[in-house]
Design a protein around this nucleic acid. Sequence first.
DNA 1: GAGCTAATTGAAAATCATTCTCATTTAACA
DNA 2: TGTTAAATGAGAATGATTTTCAATTAGCTC
Lengths: 148, 148
Amino acid sequence: MKKDFECTQESYAREILREKGLKSTVQRLAVVHVLHTSGKSLSVGEIHDGVKGILGTTGLATIYRTLEMFEDLGIVKRLHFPDGGRGYAFSQGDHVHHMVCVDCKGVFDFPECPVENFDYASVEKQGFIVRDHFVQLFGQCEKCAEAA
Amino acid sequence: MKKDFECTQESYAREILREKGLKSTVQRLAVVHVLHTSGKSLSVGEIHDGVKGILGTTGLATIYRTLEMFEDLGIVKRLHFPDGGRGYAFSQGDHVHHMVCVDCKGVFDFPECPVENFDYASVEKQGFIVRDHFVQLFGQCEKCAEAA
DNA sequence: GAGCTAATTGAAAATCATTCTCATTTAACA
DNA sequence: TGTTAAATGAGAATGATTTTCAATTAGCTC
């Protein structure tokens, strides 16, 4: 099978898959490749198209299965758009937030956590225990800001 | 028509609707009532059921239309759950974040913005302009933490 | 309060997204 | 190279959301 798209990100995915006893199929590696090289957030359909471009044919169900699994493994992150749409972005590393360009859907990592040093006093006063958070920034990348 | 559920939140919605030249229908006010009195995040189906409980019969399309519109008006906020599910929460006021109990789906407002004072230097260095953000906290409310 | 009008609703069909099933294929390892 | 459990593909099934259009209604005006 074609593996001419192998690069750092595919190796990274391979390793995580092997650690968990999961198979590194061409479909899975193609999903990583498509997401990573696009550099932006893609819909399920766009990912499907991208993978079909590499492998010729691929079942849509496989894309769904792969994305769900990759999300659990922390390889991709699901993003939510104000219009209700969803996108997936490659997400190497554990705790990364994303900044999304609303024009080109470009995704840019954001290593510092904006919420990390936040004082949860007002919430904790009510008895809550904060366990996790979802943070996503919206804006414009340099290119799109200039074009506007 | 039954309006015995009128209270502060319904008046609030009425006012916003009137400002925008939109009609305060019983269906719309019932959606506000259901969401507000539940105190938690509800799915579209749960909201539909709640409204049917008040009005007898209501079209599902109306619920969808109302929620979309209320989201634009800032009356409700769409929440996203790790499992992919979506929920809607009543959201009086402009810039409120939410903390959601993963057990009971209870929603608690969070007036301080965790992102407000964050230093966007690393992102701005790349030429980005941050325009908006989505922040959602997950955890356990007092009740559910004790029950666990 | 009755009439007018544009906005809104309801019901069902249409569309779109996601999951499931099961026979076939394949990656990983011996 | 053979074995085997995991993964895939194709399409059916399910579920979520949107659209359509005739009927209804809220918000005016008088």
